[in-house]
Nucleic acid binder design. Structure first.
Lengths: 230, 230
DNA sequence: ACCGCGTTTCGTCAATCGACGTAACCAGAC
DNA sequence: GTCTGGTTACGTCGATTGACGAAACGCGGT
């Protein structure tokens, strides 16, 4: 979540016709002084001023990264008032976690990382670009057709992980009814997987995977993919 | 829309621990060769290779901007197959247009740009960070509670512009029922503005504005704010 | 073998960045 | 007036970028 916001900020600075003033805009938004930010970045305050005033016309990405991550770290130390205001879309109740991978992750690696097993499916030789962990009950009770777009974030080529699934019919029915399809569906701790859900997954050509791993452990195990390590 | 995607790509490159390989990842995603991209960028092909291989450890934002905008321009020349795959959330049916402003836009300037008039309200001395144009009928018929999060995109400090509004009661009722509030509500071409809608807007402290301007003209007039000009 | 396409490596050099410290400016409070 | 906090401007210099072109490499097809 926060990393999406960091990308937003960094991307805006990078693409701006005047990177300096865009940096200044964001620092003002975060309510930080040049001096405090400079300390956080580990540089002298006049460096920050030089960049914001436009003396450096094309700052290197290393500097921009330091600038942005420092602002966000400072925000987090105060409970993320700015970041949370800027990511309301990320706070849909049924979304527990949602991340993009910086590089494609082979499906087999993903399934292994979450201790998953295929439900009578064959994993295609494809890759995933991210995942979303969804609270199944809340999703079923609150999501309408266009809600599913939020689950996909930046890419449909992700794994949707439904938590606390008893038989798993409703998620597959809803997914099947929607024009967009995820690359993979994972049921977390199902009692039994409904045969109809398996049938539907095959009709849609979506690999269906189950795992008995807890959500915190799943999130922990997927962190290395987020950091581009495997 | 596309600019959000460009920011996503640029942000990811900027924040990556290995910008070169992230650039390479995205170029592969777009299916472009180094040679074609180099031509599009106006540099020699070996420059692209030097960057992607990591010879330049901290590329300047000018180069990254050229790289990203060239990839996206090339994608657009082919009907945006990659960009549209990466922005499904942006294609919610009821959203006609949605943009963020690179710098705050004073409310008075925004209202003037869209030929708007206050419906018995006083414009606060505040600023907007973006806007969303919403098809009212589709929104009312299809949006659930969490849908409204999609309307807000990156910030609630935006103007929501509802099109084809007859009296404008439903949008205000729905907005009032939702935990998040926009900074401004605009009714486009209303027949008559419902007094109850005005009352609700005051209760919420949300300025209510009406305009008789057509959607294409509104979008055109707001472009200068997107480019940071006013 | 040759050819075409795609990519990498590397030497080179002018231009710019990254970072420092110093000095100055501005505004508000006492 | 002084002090504090916030910001800007600028000289300086080593390090790095931005860009070029030449040479080389790898792969598939003929």
């Amino acid at each position: 979540m926060t990393s999406d916001f960091a990308e937003k900020v960094a991307g805006e600075i990078t693409l701006s016709r005047d990177p300096g003033s865009t940096m200044r805009k964001w620092r003002d938004e975060f309510g930080a002084s040049q001096h405090a930010l400079a300390e956080s970045m580990g540089v002298s305050h006049s460096v920050v001023s030089d960049y914001e005033s436009g003396r450096r016309r094309s700052p290197g990405v290393a500097f921009v990264k330091n600038y942005v991550t420092s602002l966000i770290r400072m925000d987090e130390e105060n409970g993320s008032p700015v970041a949370s205001r800027y990511a309301p879309a990320a706070r849909a109740e049924c979304i527990i976690a949602m991340e993009e991978f910086p590089a494609d992750v082979p499906m087999a690696d993903f399934v292994a990382a979450i201790g998953g097993e295929c439900c009578d499916c064959v994993l295609p030789d494809k890759a995933l670009k991210g995942y979303t962990i969804v609270d199944s009950l809340k999703a079923i009770m609150t999501l309408g057709s266009n809600d599913y777009l939020c689950l996909y974030g930046w890419s449909t080529e992700r794994a949707l992980i439904f938590t606390d699934v008893h038989y798993g019919r409703s998620p597959m029915v809803a997914i099947r009814a929607h024009p967009l399809s995820p690359a993979m569906v994972v049921y977390q701790k199902p009692d039994n997987v409904d045969p109809l859900a398996i049938k539907l997954s095959k009709l849609e050509g979506i690999p269906l995977v189950s795992t008995m791993m807890g959500v915190p452990e799943i999130i922990e195990n997927l962190k290395r993919f987020e950091e581009g390590i495997w």
